[in-house]
Amino acid sequence: MEVDKGKGEAEETRKVAEADRDTVTLKSSDGKLFEVSKEAAARLSTVLAGMIAGGSIDDNGTDLKQIGSEALENVVDYCNKHANSIPSAALISSSISFNTAPFKEPEEWERKFVDRLSHDALFDLVEAANFLGMERLLDVTCHKISEMMKGKSPDQIREVFNIKNDYTKEELEEIRQELAWAFYDD
């Protein structure tokens, strides 16, 4: 009985401590644990903000079964970097003159952040950002992928993204004729 009581008290103490903690623990599909600042998680992810507000954050690590450890590490890394970055003057001024624009150019550190990722990691991160409702990270990763497509021929895009050309010969010929203006002499 004594032991049980002690355990209950410990549980109680830990719960109080959890409420006061300024980090949350997230668990990847392969069981790895990551800590992230509660403030950054709530600010950058609508899904995590909802879980924190609704008290559904698990002290032993909130299960994110859809996200692998590499992607989750990048998500946490992004949140930490974001918390440390001071918005640049360029971002402030552009938000004044183009406050209706849906997309703001990535900042220097955000570019560097996505540039170092492998293609696998980038695509996993897009999906993770989408799942967690991280609008800014989604913008930055989608922007990176779109940049990788710009100015490339269909063959180059297929090669870079490992896409299988599943058009029939006839369909391809039809498309080439319809979109002849878009093809350089490749």
Binding site: V126, L138, C142, W181
Partner: peptide, 23 residues
Amino acid sequence: LLEEIFLLLEAPADLARASSTCT
């Protein structure tokens, strides 16, 4: 997500070439 990415291809030629890579 593909929509999000393609929306960022402002140049019509880029969009046309991307759309002709696969069905």
